[in-house]
Design a protein around this nucleic acid. Structure first.
Lengths: 273, 273
DNA sequence: GGGTATTTGTCCGTATGTATT
DNA sequence: AAATACATACGGACAAATACC
């Protein structure tokens, strides 16, 4: 069985999709119809469709049918936007699939960033947090967690960690469940004299956990991964002052990293932080 | 059927794996044994195992059995290492899962980067290449493609594009199927006076195509994605001089991006470019 | 190299449950 | 309430890959 039946059928359907004969959003024939058309059992048809779903080409909806997936207009975030930039993402430009096929005929819609008010916890630092903040494992840290949306659609989950000491030596608003409107970078400079002079981003991709999959509306089967970005910020004494962990789904996010002298990106519209 | 049978069975197995009762690399019971143990049909057992596969917890090998996956010691690449840095990755530090659990008791093994000699083609620029190099679509470009390995295991696929004109105005070694030992950055500076003053990386994640899956040994079902990194390099006149597209599997690669002043990473061992 | 046992992969048919329209 | 479409579950048969003697 060099090429199993279900793969052959999937291949035919794949070509129809990629050739454009089946437009994104369009419904496929039902499993029963496909069974008759290809003379295979319904289970084999289902294997073919299941294969296409793992390839990310179609999605099935109980009671409705099977549909060609819509490509998502991606969010593009610049990770290098000056050392004083607040944690997390800096600039978001409208998607356009990242390949410069910008439609300049009509003005680009600015996107609207919203977020929940921070959820504050005092936690014991686990190995990861402790390692990045150069604290002893088990030290107390302040955790500030937010869910962030762009134009109402879930965009990212962000958690920032600070040494617990910060809140008892002058920066007590870190433990308030309110936004720090001037930005935590500015606030820590004002209260503790900590200037953020640089940061390091550590980028990895992994399958989402249950919370993440449900927040982002990802398929439960872990087919779509998430970026996990650890941003460690350093003060003027080269000591880590903050760790921010941000989660982005890979299916709707891209990142830009600039080094040296790079011409400004024409499409950048708005600083959303 | 709030919680289908196969998910319940998968859940039990998942707990055994994550609790450590089933060590990585260990073999699970055979489908027949599991069928008897859980009183389900073999197909239901198979559904449970398939679920664990999409979660990335186990892998099946025909004729052998089902095994708990081994975590791969990741490669970590720094994307920001000075404007003159040659295309692609700059520095690779040994894995340690990226969370600072470095074992300092024994010296870290330096890793060995090898690569195939470049495969040269003259191509017409597609929309993507033309857009990044600011050429007309269909212009001729030089394509230099390499497969790269670390310690013998497939690490990345890299293709660099240059305007065809470069090879007829002095940089003719660009079309030789030989390494340019001093590096193409240096070579283009020497021959054409083009100084690389900066570059922009565009990072996205997508499912691998067939070529990539087979080169990296990824499962054919697209469960493991690949990073696609477009690096556009600019010369002293802010004109794009090179586009390098590099593909890395997400299951064994992580990236670091530095901005501003960041303390040197203690674990960095070797510049592999 | 060949043969055999073991294990997963493919394919079929059927029945019933659940979600949506 | 009824019809439609996908989801789950069972049981059976044979194929293909691997390991071992």
């Amino acid at each position: 069985m060099a090429n199993p039946r279900y793969r052959q059928i999937a291949e035919v359907l794949r070509e129809q999709i990629e050739s454009g004969a089946l437009q994104p959003g369009r419904q496929l024939r039902t499993e029963i119809e496909l069974r008759e058309r290809y003379g295979a059992s319904r289970n084999t048809i289902r294997d073919a469709i299941k294969w296409l779903t793992t390839l990310g080409l179609v999605e099935t909806k109980p009671g409705q049918g099977t549909f060609v997936v819509q490509k998502i207009d991606p969010f593009v975030t610049t990770l290098t936007a000056g050392p004083e930039r607040p944690g997390g993402a800096a600039v978001v430009i409208p998607g356009q699939d990242g390949y410069g096929e910008i439609d300049r005929s009509q003005p680009v819609q600015p996107r609207k960033l919203t977020y929940t008010s921070p959820q504050i916890e005092i936690q014991k630092a686990d190995r990861i947090v402790a390692g990045q903040l150069q604290l002893a494992e088990g030290s107390q840290v302040i955790s500030r967690h937010q869910r962030r949306y762009i134009d109402g659609t879930p965009w990212s989950l962000q958690t920032s960690f600070y040494p617990r000491a910060f809140a008892v030596t002058g920066a007590d608003r870190l433990v308030d469940a309110d936004d720090i409107r001037e930005g935590t970078v500015q606030y820590l400079a004002d209260t503790l004299g900590l200037r953020q002079v640089g940061y390091r981003n550590w980028i990895k991709v992994r399958p989402p956990d249950v919370t993440e999959a449900s927040f982002f509306g990802l398929p439960q089967d872990g087919r779509v991964g998430v970026f996990e970005i650890l941003e460690t910020a350093f003060d003027q004494t080269a000591t880590p002052m903050r760790l921010t962990v941000t989660i982005f789904p890979t299916d709707r996010n891209q990142f830009i990293v600039n080094a040296g002298e790079v011409p400004a990106d024409q499409f950048i519209r708005e600083d959303l932080t």
